[in-house]
Structure formats: C-alpha cells, structure tokens
Design a protein around this nucleic acid. Structure first.
Length: 162
DNA sequence: GCCAACGTTGGC
DNA sequence: GCCAACGTTGGC
C-alpha cells in the first residue's frame, strides 16, 4: 500500500534537541509528544514523508532543517517508564496512549526560515497553516505540498524580511 | 520572565 | 456535560 508523500512540520526546543543534535545522531525517536492532535498526525505519517525541523522557544524561532520520517508510528516507550518525565500512569504496553515516529536527518538549511519571514508569507501559505495562526501551540502539524514548495523556495529566494 | 492562548482535569 | 482551575506552550 503506497500513498503520495506527505509533509509535516515538527517543533523542538533547540536547548532540548536541535537540528545539530539530529545531524549528530542521524535518527531520533520523537519522544514526549503528549497532545492528541499531534499524536494523531504522527500516526498518519509514513516512511519517507518530508519534515520541516522547527526550533521553538529560542531567540529566532523558525525552520532550521529538513528531515524525513523513518518509520511508521509505534508506542512512545517513555510513557511506560516511571522515571521519565513523559511517564503516563494511564498508559500500558497493552493499551498505549502515545505514539511516535523516528525522524531522520536530511540537511540543515543554509539560511533558516525565521518565523517572521514565514509570517510575511502568510498570504501565500494560506490561513489554514497552523504555524502562522495566532495562539497555535501544535507541535506536529501537516504541511501541504504547495506550502512545502513555497517554504523551500523562500530558502533560495531571500526577500524583504531577511 | 511575562503572559496570552490553549488543552486537560475534576468537581458538581 | 458544564466550566473554573490549573498546567503548558511558545512568542516576545
């Protein structure tokens, strides 16, 4: 069963785990997502899907790199570990609550796409793009092929906002 | 560090 | 099932 490649944006605090960390390790299980909507998106992912790696909670928030989904979703092991800060006492291996995918490094952007720059293209990206919607805290979100192309083109075509 | 926006929890 | 309280996210 194949389907067309999809695209996603995944947020991480660089102090926690940055694109440089991903480059170092190559592939990383995306642990710790504890939001149902974000979890559902991860369950929709398929190997090969494209990922924008977004740095949040940092001096210049924005897209810093590209990654790819490395596997289909499986239970997040941290939910079963009482010592983990992501432990969930209501989850069990028989009935896991939280799922994740492995994310594989592709490349670091030569010029990061700052949130400011992305916002300045909100018109082209469409109002439904969660990242530029006010108050959106979603840490995993879908990106349409058109949005993916547009954001990538911004990397090579710096404009007014840079 | 502040705080607005949002999701979750739990009393009723 | 409502909704107030609380905790978290994340830009600024």
């Amino acid at each position: 069963m194949t389907r067309r490649k999809r695209y996603w944006l995944m947020k991480s605090e660089p102090g926690d785990f940055s694109i440089d960390d991903l480059q170092r390790v190559g592939t990383e299980p995306w642990t710790g997502v504890r939001n149902y909507q974000a979890r559902n998106f991860m369950r929709d992912m398929q190997p090969g899907d494209g990922v924008f790696f977004y740095h949040s909670n940092t001096e210049v928030p924005g897209i810093y790199g590209l990654a790819r989904v490395a596997c289909t979703a499986y239970p997040d092991p941290t939910q079963f570990n009482p010592k983990s800060k992501y432990f969930d006492e209501k989850a069990s291996p028989e009935e896991p609550r939280w799922f994740l995918v492995d994310v594989q490094y592709v490349r670091t952007l030569e010029r990061p796409l700052s949130l400011d720059a992305i916002k300045s293209h909100a018109e082209d990206l469409g109002q439904e793009f969660p990242l530029v919607r006010r108050g959106s805290r979603l840490s995993v979100m879908p990106v349409t092929p058109a949005q993916w192309e547009h954001l990538l083109s911004m990397e090579s075509a710096p404009d007014d906002t840079q």
